[in-house]
Amino acid sequence: MFEEGQLYSPVTTRADGTVEVHLGADHPGLNDPAYRSRRGEIAAASLAWQPGTPVPLITYTPAEDAVWAVASTELAPKHERYAHSEYLRGKAALRLPTDRVPQLGEVTEALHSLTGWSYVCAPGLVGLRDFYGSLGDRVFHSTQYLRHPSQPLYTPEPDIIHEVIGHANQLASPRFARLTEAAGRATRRLESDEAVKVVADVFWFSMEFGVMWEADVLKAYGAGILSSYGEMDAFSHMEIRPLDLEQMATIPYDITTYQSVLFAADSLDQLEDVVGDFFDSVDDDAAHRLLGAHAHTA
């Protein structure tokens, strides 16, 4: 099951008003005071942001731009090899900069003309209902910080490289954008937290870690795979199962490692027919039936 809190470093405000980001014990930046201070500055800008106002501009340093540039350069040939053509079409249309970190306002401007989506800032964790509910309004909450420069191709948490290279390129595709919006609209309909987690888990195994057959070759379309340098090499060697909503909604998984089980759509049409129709129609009763069916067969 999806546990959102494990994905993001907690953010707190001290009594003196300074913001601290609490990095995990395995975080490459844990013992780097300058990096930790910078993370606090960026989180503070997001905490001070008010909805309806422009997203704060972050003056990225040359070192931060270099991390983005390394990730963009190294991910690009892997995208050409491993990404589904629909993702590649979105990426070509969005035309993100490759030599510097884009501002979220830039991402919004480019996306809005393609699919009507906007990006807003988040210091870290956004509540499950708030994050998914906003997707129903075509609004994506994104972090603005970058991974530690010692490991430009690895991050233990979602950073702007994941949120933008992974998700914004995906959201530049009208078909992927509609699926994402449908997940958000589903969340708005649901009353129980258990039902919301069902939607989040199906989203995890589709829009985050989805794979799809294309001309008899397994390709990735999930943002989590396509923003991960290592996972793109690994995903085709995992256990690949056909789309199965009950399994996608209920199987346990570890978010801290490569996903060992992935669900493959036969085509984009099938993804829309199965996952899209689920997001379009799911209500609390249907979500609980999936959970009940799993409990009955487990």
Results as ranks from 00 to 15, higher is better:
Gly5Asp: 13
Gly5Cys: 03
Gly5Glu: 12
Gln6Asn: 13
Ser9Trp: 12
Ser9Pro: 15
Pro10His: 04
Thr12Arg: 13
Thr13Ile: 14
Ala15Ile: 11
Asp16Lys: 14
Glu20Ser: 13
Asp26Gln: 15
Pro28Trp: 10
Pro33Cys: 09
Pro33Lys: 02
Pro33Gln: 01
Arg38Glu: 08
Glu41Met: 09
Trp49Phe: 11
Trp49Leu: 06
Pro51Ser: 11
Thr53His: 12
Leu57Ser: 13
Ile58Gly: 03
Val67Cys: 05
Ala69Met: 11
Val70Trp: 00
Ala71Gln: 08
Glu74Arg: 14
Glu74Val: 02
Pro77His: 10
Pro77Arg: 06
Lys78Met: 08
Arg81Gln: 14
Arg81Gly: 00
Arg81Pro: 01
His84Gln: 01
Tyr87Thr: 01
Lys91Arg: 15
Ala93Met: 03
Arg95Gly: 14
Arg100Gln: 08
Val101Lys: 00
Val101Phe: 07
Leu104Lys: 03
Leu104Gly: 00
Gly105Asp: 12
Ala110Leu: 15
Leu111Lys: 07
His112Lys: 11
Ser113Asn: 01
Tyr119Leu: 14
Val120Asn: 02
Cys121Asp: 10
Cys121His: 00
Ala122Ile: 04
Pro123Tyr: 02
Leu125Thr: 05
Leu125Asp: 04
Gly127Asp: 14
Tyr132Asp: 05
Gly133Arg: 07
Ser134Asn: 09
Leu135Asn: 03
Val139Ile: 15
Ser142Asp: 07
Arg147Thr: 03
Pro156Ile: 04
Pro156Leu: 04
Pro158Ala: 09
Asp159Gln: 12
Asp159Cys: 09
Ile161Glu: 07
Glu163Phe: 09
Gly166Trp: 10
His167Tyr: 07
Ala168Leu: 01
Arg175Phe: 02
Phe176Arg: 01
Ala182Arg: 12
Ala183Arg: 07
Gly184Glu: 02
Arg185Lys: 13
Arg188Lys: 15
Arg189Thr: 05
Glu191Phe: 01
Asp193Ala: 12
Asp193His: 11
Asp193Trp: 05
Val196Thr: 12
Lys197Arg: 15
Val198Leu: 06
Ala200Asn: 08
Val202Gln: 05
Val202Arg: 03
Met212Ile: 15
Glu214Val: 07
Glu214Asn: 08
Ala215Lys: 13
Ala215Leu: 06
Lys219Asp: 01
Ala220Glu: 02
Ala220Thr: 05
Tyr221Val: 01
Leu226Phe: 08
Ser227Leu: 03
Tyr229Val: 06
Glu231Ala: 11
Phe235Lys: 01
His237Glu: 14
Ile240Met: 09
Arg241Phe: 04
Leu243Met: 11
Leu243Trp: 12
Asp244Leu: 05
Gln247Phe: 04
Ala249Met: 08
Ile251Gln: 13
Pro252Asp: 14
Ile255Pro: 03
Thr257Gln: 15
Ser260Lys: 15
Val261Leu: 03
Val261Cys: 02
Phe263Cys: 10
Leu268Glu: 12
Asp273Lys: 11
Val275Asp: 05
Gly276Thr: 05
Phe278Trp: 12
Val282Ile: 15
Asp283Ile: 08
Asp284Met: 04
Ala286Cys: 03
Arg289Asp: 07
Leu290Ser: 03
Ala293Asn: 14
